[in-house]
C-alpha cells in the first residue's frame, strides 16, 4: 500500500461549513504537505475541531473543496483520526485494534501481526485481553492512537488528544506523537494548550471565529504573531 502515490499534500481550498445558520468555518484555505506536525491553535469555538473533521471526511463542506494528492482517496482511507474523548468499543484492548483493521478490510495473519505490532509499539501488550473501557484515561488515549497507527495512516488527525488527561499522561502522549512524526507520519492536531503547541508544532494554523487568521512556521509564530487576535491569545487574553 505504501508504494502507491502519496495522498499528501492535502489541499483545503476555500472551505466553509455552515451549521445552525452560522458560518462555523469561514472560507479556510491551506495545504498539508508530507511530514511534520501541524497544530491548529485557537480559543474554544474557533473551528479547530470542525476543520479536522472536514479534512477527515466526517463532515461535508458547505462550500469549497478538500482534495488529496492522489485524487479520490480510494476505498481504504490512508488518514486516521483520534478524538478528544477516546471512543472505546466494549471489547478487549486487542479486539479494539482488530475491529478497526477488520473495518479496513485487513484479515487473517496480517491482522494478527498488525495487532501485535501495535500492542508492542504502544506498550499495551500486557493489557491486550483487558476490557478497553476499564483502562485509565491516558491508557485509553494511547490505545486510540495505537488503533489509528495500526491502520498505517500517512496523515493522523488528533482533536485535542490530551485535554482530558493529567500532566503525566499528557507528557506520555506528547512523546508518542513526537515518535510518530519521527517515524514519518504526518500529524495534524488541534489544541488550545499553548505550551503543548510550543513543544510539538512545526507549523501553526491559528483559527479565530471560523477564519484562518495566521498560517506560519511555529518558531516564527511564537516569536511574534502577526494577527492581533493571535497576539491577544498568546498574551493569555481570552478572546471569543
Amino acid at each position: 500500500m505504501r508504494d502507491i502515490a502519496s495522498i499528501l499534500p492535502l489541499s483545503v481550498d476555500r472551505v466553509s461549513f455552515t451549521g445552525e445558520g452560522r458560518k462555523l468555518v469561514d472560507v479556510v484555505s491551506f495545504a498539508v504537505p508530507a511530514g511534520g506536525l501541524t497544530v491548529l491553535l485557537g480559543p474554544n469555538g474557533a473551528g479547530k475541531s470542525l476543520t479536522l473533521r472536514l479534512c477527515h471526511g466526517l463532515l461535508k463542506p458547505s462550500a469549497g473543496e478538500i482534495a488529496w494528492a492522489n485524487g479520490a482517496a480510494g476505498r481504504v482511507k490512508r488518514h486516521a483520526m483520534v478524538f478528544q474523548k477516546p471512543i472505546m468499543l466494549r471489547r478487549s484492548v486487542e479486539a479494539n485494534i482488530a475491529h478497526a483493521l477488520a473495518a479496513a478490510g485487513i484479515s487473517g495473519i496480517e491482522r494478527r501481526q498488525r495487532c501485535g505490532a501495535a500492542l508492542d509499539r504502544f506498550g499495551l501488550g500486557e493489557r491486550a485481553a483487558q476490557p478497553a473501557r476499564l483502562l485509565s484515561g491516558g491508557e485509553q488515549q494511547r490505545l486510540a492512537i495505537a488503533r489509528a497507527w495500526a491502520l498505517r495512516p500517512e496523515l493522523l488527525f488528533l482533536d485535542e488528544p490530551t485535554s482530558q488527561l493529567d500532566p503525566a499522561a499528557t507528557r506520555q502522549i506528547e512523546e508518542l506523537l513526537s515518535g510518530l512524526v519521527a517515524e514519518g507520519i504526518t500529524v495534524m492536531m488541534s489544541t488550545h494548550d499553548l505550551g503543548q503547541a510550543k513543544r510539538l508544532a512545526n507549523r501553526v494554523l491559528f483559527l479565530h471565529r471560523g477564519r484562518l487568521v495566521e498560517d506560519r512556521p511555529a518558531a516564527d509564530f511564537f516569536a511574534g504573531p502577526l494577527a492581533p487576535e493571535a497576539r491577544a491569545f498568546l498574551a493569555g487574553e481570552l478572546i471569543w
Binding site: A102, A103, A104, G105, I106, S107
Partner: peptide, 8 residues
Amino acid sequence: MTAIDRRL
C-alpha cells in the same frame, strides 16, 4: 471486500 462486509 472487508471482514465487516463479509459478515453482512
